[in-house]
Amino acid sequence: MSENVTLTIDGKDITGEKGQTIMDAALANDIYIPHLCHHPDLAPYGSCRVCTCLVNGRPQTACTFPISDGMEVENDTDTVNEMRKQIVEMLFVEGNHYCMFCEKSGNCELQALAYRFGVTTPRYPYQFPKREVDASHPNVWIDRDRCVLCARCIRASKDVDGKHAFDFAGRGPNRHISVDAADGIEHTPVDADDKAVQVCPVGSLMLKRQGYKIPIGQRKYDHEPIGTDIETGASKKQ
């Protein structure tokens, strides 16, 4: 039997299981902690920093930090949300995010976070980096302009698909997704039904011929902010 742990998130008492991360405990208690690199089916990674909370006054990422008895977590406060907003804005200026023609628009988690935080435009200057697109595969393509380096595809391909078709190359501002072949994604064993292809939070790793399928107005984040399903408990009923 699992051991119970009690903690508070924004003053609310919640109970979790020993060994859980703050993120998992929060999700189980219908509390939304904004996140981007975290995915429930993948190992925690802690790269985007959007889920940063103050844990007993110290900044920690909810997706990687284990809960403990008496822990006090500050999540939905102005201070914390302001930092998250800045991180989201950093991601927007770092890449080339052309939402107006992106197939993922309306269903994109990065865009949805910006909507939730009320970002009308990032406060930082756009960097306009040069990034490579790889459309060599018959069914899948990578647009690195949109990549937020969350490693979801890397983790899914390695741990779920068992293929290790992706990994990071380069470092610092030059860090980017590389594929397991010298000459493009078509030479990797990636398939359209790979977990790796399904988990991209943005429009970076996409299925071909699937764009704009859902009309504007019916997309995931057209009417309700990201996290609403968690806050209302709707995500669990599905």
Partner: peptide, 10 residues
Amino acid sequence: ELPYELIKYD
């Protein structure tokens, strides 16, 4: 102050 539905990038 724009409501949620009026901040859209597309």
